[in-house]
């Protein structure tokens, strides 16, 4: 249909336009102030760093902690969310608890983790886990709840165990909203790790930015910031695409 094709082109053009405006704005700002490195210098500094291998350890530390925490949040969060969504009693008991805890800034528990576990990737990972677990629990509970009741009836009419019904019927049916929560959890895990690194860390991309800042190594700092944004961009878009594919299948 020509209308949707022209619409999509318009959207693409707008997107490209926005990116161009942003880059131009950056150039303008860098020309206006010596404290802002130009896009070109930043990218160059980033590439130099990458070539010299200076980024690898930090990258690994950040991404490692993030993935560890993210996986933990999924493994813990989905079963809890499932229980809350499926059992009226558990839902009534614990959903308010989750909702209220959601408002507490998880970063304030970072010093606690640092004290108990020590500085390093593990404390960052656990902070990411306790942060990301909330959107996952909430999304899973919501998704499980709105699974068509007829499907549960199908499961019980086959005389299957609860576990089988959960694994083969309810969870697949609730997958699109769960993926939404997982995507948000992923973003939260990433943000949490970076912020933790800006606070106290032994290594990581956040620490790299902070070091560059304190050494006034501006091009490197902006390059690292750009890299962090790029990672967030790629990661969240990938998960978003997965989520949309799942939604298309289920409609």
């Amino acid at each position: 249909m020509s209308r949707s094709v022209s619409r999509r082109r318009k959207v693409m053009e707008l997107r490209i336009g926005l990116v161009v405006v942003a880059v131009l704005g950056w150039y303008g700002a860098s020309a206006a102030s010596p404290l802002i490195a130009s896009p070109l210098d930043s990218v160059r500094a980033l590439v130099d760093q990458a070539r010299a291998g200076a980024l690898t350890a930090d990258c690994a530390s950040t991404l490692g902690a993030m993935l560890y925490g993210f996986v933990a949040s999924v493994v813990i969060g989905i079963p809890i969310g499932y229980a809350i969504g499926r059992s009226r009693l558990i839902g009534a008991a614990f959903e308010p608890v989750i909702a209220s805890l959601f408002a507490v800034p998880r970063i304030i528990f970072y010093p606690l983790l640092l004290g108990v576990i020590g500085v390093g990737a593990t404390s960052k990972a656990w902070l990411a886990a306790i942060s990301a677990v909330f959107p996952i629990i909430i999304a899973t509970a919501g998704g499980v709840r709105q699974v068509a009741p007829i499907l549960s009836r199908l499961g019980s009419s086959l005389g299957s165990s609860r576990l089988k019904v959960a694994w083969k019927i309810v969870l697949p049916a609730a997958l699109p909203p769960i993926m939404g929560g997982v995507r948000i959890g992923f973003g939260v895990a990433f943000v949490t790790v970076i912020i933790a690194e800006l606070f106290v860390a032994a290594s990581g991309l956040g620490l790299a930015v902070r070091d560059a800042y304190s050494q006034l190594n501006l091009a490197v700092m902006y390059g690292d910031i750009l890299f962090i944004v790029a990672v967030a961009f790629v990661g969240s878009l990938a998960l978003w695409a997965v989520e949309r594919r799942l939604q298309a299948v289920s409609d």
Binding site: G187, L198, A232
Partner: peptide
């Protein structure tokens, strides 16, 4: 969508 996953604090120096 990306902004949600970006640690906006990194723009603090800017």
């Amino acid at each position: 969508v990306t902004l949600y996953a970006t640690p906006t604090l990194v723009f603090y120096p800017v």
